[in-house]
């Protein structure tokens, strides 16, 4: 190796180390701070203890907010996945004039519907309907915001399922429901799995809508509670936050691993001889 090459090698390695450290530090903090007797915002070898966990479990809202989050996300994810699948299948197979325009308009509006611009109308509407402080209602609103993008992505998946699969099932006497259950859903399953995880992650991390629609602290999901975890002085409660953050991260990772293992994000694809 020429000195020049060595220098380049060194520079490259150093650069990668910096990049890696940049991404690794928050992860390491998440792994160490919950077990540190005096957690700070910096990274250090912990002074091992489990007191933080005890304090967090005794916090009046910490655990219940995680349960609230799960309820809200299950509602939002289920509604998004089921309706997006049905809508994507229909839009993919039925010929209606202006179908593509409709999809683009929906997609455009979706960023407005749950976007900041529509916050006030949404709040007023939900308030007058008496649906504030309800995980179910908030889940529905979130699903409404996710649906257009979900339909858009899923339609692409369903489009790529060859029609001849369905036609051959029909020739063998399958009813429309059987065609959907036996052929379309299994073949589009990796796409549906993708949407499911995506919807869950979106709903899990959504702060603005629950913050707005859930004024009652006991009904707030984790994403909202995390922001309000402060001690009496108003500074961040560093005993609870690390543990809570770790707990908050677990469901998303677990769901991803489960879905990836069980359903796979792969696509079977058509058969070409």
């Amino acid at each position: 190796m020429t000195p020049r090459q060595v220098a380049r090698r060194l520079a490259y390695t150093a650069f990668m180390a910096v990049v890696l450290a940049f991404f690794a530090v928050p992860m390491l903090w998440l792994a160490s701070a919950p077990f540190d007797s005096d957690p700070g915002l910096g990274l250090r070898w912990p002074d091992w203890t489990l007191t933080n966990w005890q304090v967090t479990f005794e916090h009046p809202y910490a655990l219940s907010s995680l349960v609230n989050s799960v309820v809200l996300c299950v509602v939002a994810t289920a509604v998004t996945t089921v309706f997006a699948t049905l809508a994507a299948y229909t839009l993919s197979r039925v010929r209606i004039p202006g179908r593509d325009a409709l999809l683009y308009v929906l997609l455009l509006l979706s960023s407005v519907v749950t976007g900041t611009a529509a916050m006030v109308p949404i709040f007023v509407m939900m308030f007058q309907l008496g649906l504030t402080n309800s995980q179910y209602a908030t889940g529905l609103v979130i699903a409404g915001g996710l649906l257009p993008a979900a339909i858009f992505i899923l339609k692409d998946f369903v489009d790529s399922v060859p029609r001849s699969y369905e036609e051959s099932a029909r020739v063998f006497g399958a009813s429309p429901t059987q065609v959907l259950l036996h052929v379309v859903l299994p073949v589009a399953r990796p796409g549906i799995a993708t949407i499911l995880v995506w919807a869950f992650v979106q709903a899990w991390g959504n702060f603005l809508l629950p913050f707005l629609l859930m004024r009652d602290v006991s009904s707030q999901p984790a994403a909202v509670l995390l922001r309000t975890l402060r001690d009496e002085g108003g500074s961040a409660n560093l005993t609870v936050i690390p543990v809570f953050s770790l707990l908050y991260a677990i469901p998303v990772v677990a769901l991803y691993l489960f879905v990836s293992k069980r359903y796979g994000f792969r696509f079977h694809g058509g058969i070409k001889a």
């Binding site: 060859p162 001849s164 051959s168 020739v171 063998f172 006497g173 399958a174 052929v183 058509g270 058969i271």
Partner: peptide, 20 residues
């Protein structure tokens, strides 16, 4: 009549075997 009740079997050009 719908295809299913015609009692006609068909082999498609791409075979249309269900991949799953």
């Amino acid at each position: 009549l719908e295809p299913g009740v015609r009692k006609v079997a068909m082999v498609f050009q791409d075979y249309a075997l269900f991949p799953h």
